[in-house]
């Protein structure tokens, strides 16, 4: 049972890391919560489904198409909605939540409300230390970690990545260094959209495609960034592991139905004891 918990927990944490980092980047740079992040997840899943299963395109181009759809959705959301409300975080949060609901309705109109089964990205089962794990989940975890590793290198080692961190720490300091925070926000919304869509493809192949599939991942992303500390990539990654392992232990040892309950309890405890999160610092 221990090896099952370790392996499943590690696999789940990679996916949660992808969700949380995509979500926290927006807050860190723009100081707003993007509640349409769930729509990115949904769009990723459905675009991949349309391309790979309905249009019968190969998996890799379909995956890239889904990620690009996520980028486009993030960028358009920023340009059309968020930029106009940039001085009003509440307006951004309400409007992005409404956008997510509208996108869900559109998805229902186009694809019907019925859940759809997705083919795995990689069929088959691997046995790791005696635990049977689908290759699809292993692939999702490996890709998630490669992407997250690449993202960490990007934000620490490139001028653009450093500019994103600079805006997240001090927008005025960044501006007088010649960085345009609006351009950085645009890049960040695009990146976040890509991460959300990628997570959407993985989640859909991990569970199933469903117009309501955006709600639980959004709650999970919020939970991870609250526990990790809003705005911190490293904090989010550590919190993703805490929550990923906690949910795996709950599912394996207690009852799968209680999985989300313990996550919510953890949020409340963290908010009461360390309101800034376990690794809270307002930067990427």
């Amino acid at each position: 049972m221990l090896s099952q918990i370790l392996i499943q927990g590690f696999l789940l944490s990679g996916l949660y890391g992808l969700l949380a980092v995509g979500f926290t980047m927006i807050f860190s740079v723009g100081r707003v919560l993007n509640l349409a992040f769930g729509a990115n997840i949904m769009i990723g899943g459905y675009v991949y489904f349309a391309l790979a299963q309905e249009a019968a395109l190969p998996k890799l181009p379909s995956f890239i198409g889904a990620v690009l759809a996520g980028v486009a959705f993030g960028v358009v959301t920023y340009l059309i909605l968020v930029r106009r409300f940039r001085d009003d975080p509440i307006a951004v949060e309400i409007s992005t939540l409404i956008l997510a609901v509208v996108m869900q309705a559109l998805i229902v109109m186009i694809f019907s409300p019925a859940p759809r089964s997705m083919w795995p990205l990689l069929p088959g089962v691997a046995h790791i230390y005696g635990v049977a794990v689908s290759l699809n989940i292993v692939l999702a975890t490996v890709v998630s970690w490669v992407v997250l590793g690449g993202l960490l290198v990007f934000v620490h080692k490139t001028h653009l990545g450093r500019a994103i961190r600079a805006v997240s720490m001090d927008p005025k300091g960044a501006t007088i260094s010649g960085i345009d925070p609006r351009q950085i926000s645009l890049v960040t919304w695009g990146l976040s959209g890509a991460l959300g869509a990628m997570a959407g493809v993985f989640l859909a192949t991990y569970t199933q495609l469903d117009p309501g599939m955006w709600v639980f991942p959004l709650i999970t992303a919020v939970a991870v960034v609250i526990v990790g500390g809003i705005g911190s990539i490293i904090g989010s990654l550590i919190a993703a592991h805490i929550i990923g392992f906690m949910e795996t232990i709950t599912t394996t040892v207690i009852a799968a139905e209680l999985r989300g309950v313990f996550t919510m309890l953890l949020i409340i405890i963290v908010l009461l004891v360390v309101p800034k999160g376990l690794f809270g610092r307002e930067e990427i």
Binding site: H159, R162, A163, R165, A166, M169, D170, K172, G173, A174, I176, S177, G178, I179, R281, E283
Partner: peptide
């Protein structure tokens, strides 16, 4: 521009702060 409060990037090292200043003069 060196503003009154510095407006530095607190979680970056000295060199990284300086590199951000070179964003337009790479």
């Amino acid at each position: 521009y060196a503003p009154e409060r510095g407006n530095l990037f607190p979680f970056m090292g000295v060199k990284e702060n300086l590199l951000v200043g070179a964003y337009r003069a790479r």
